[in-house]
Amino acid sequence: MNPILRQIIIIVVVMAAVLTASAGLIWLERRLLALWQDRRGPNRVGPFGLMQVTADMIKIFFKEDWIPPFADRPVFVIAPALLVVTVLMSFAVVPFAPGFVVSDLNVGLLFFLAMTALGVYGIALGGWSSNNKYALLGAIRATAQMLSYEVFMGLALMGVVILAGSFNLSDIVEAQKNLWFCIPQFPGLVIFIIAGFAETHRLPFDLPEAESELVAGFHSEYSGIKFGLFFVGEYLGVTLISAMIVIFFFGGWLGPFLPPILWFVIKTFVFICGFILLRASLPRPRYDQLMSFAWKVLLPLALLNLIITGGIVLAVG
């Protein structure tokens, strides 16, 4: 097969799968939350309420696409797209199965980190261009939060890099053939998960859009499909972080009997459910608690983890 055509097919498949999955997450999240709250959740539209997603999409597409007159128009329009694009870009380096990757970069991990860091622009600009105090406060919170957690998100992954000896994600997965990194890099895993929550600003770290304080935070002024993009961006983020957890710590596509792609999907799905479980159970911390937790606990831990891992690798290898 033509390698370019193959690449294009992969891109299309990845895009379609990821976007569908994130849309499906809307339904999944509502059903799971309902399950854990002894309710039923959306179950009217289609079998098991699966068409709820379609209904929601139709609704969101047909809503009035309102731009407030006081908003900074071009930035306001671009911001949600920026968020979605940066997250989608990260998927370019995700190896779903051996050879099933859009771009097998040798600095894939760095690319992932770079793209997540760029994601903050979507939020910061969206909040700023709304010209609304709640939106701005949300954006400021998001920026500070994402910058802080990015630091040790990267540091947490350095242990993995040391063990795998590569920035290439496929290599990292391959390096876990014998032992998933969740065992040797357990502290890194915990730190990365926490940082992942903060990066996707999901509950319990959804302070940028804490509705009880900030209306809807950075997307207060957004409605219609632009709001939909933020919404999808968030679920894309959830999927991405789950996929990354699987890749870095749980052996990616590795597993017996089943085809690799299925292993990857199953593992990712479990972590997505974990995201939702945490949303269902944990309350939101105060903002200062969030920040001090990042700098005073997680950063030293991440550094310690790096030093110890490095030391052990040096000593052993």
Partner: peptide
Amino acid sequence: ILRHSFRRPET
């Protein structure tokens, strides 16, 4: 919360 997965819905 996880244990609630196995409860009957009240709905």
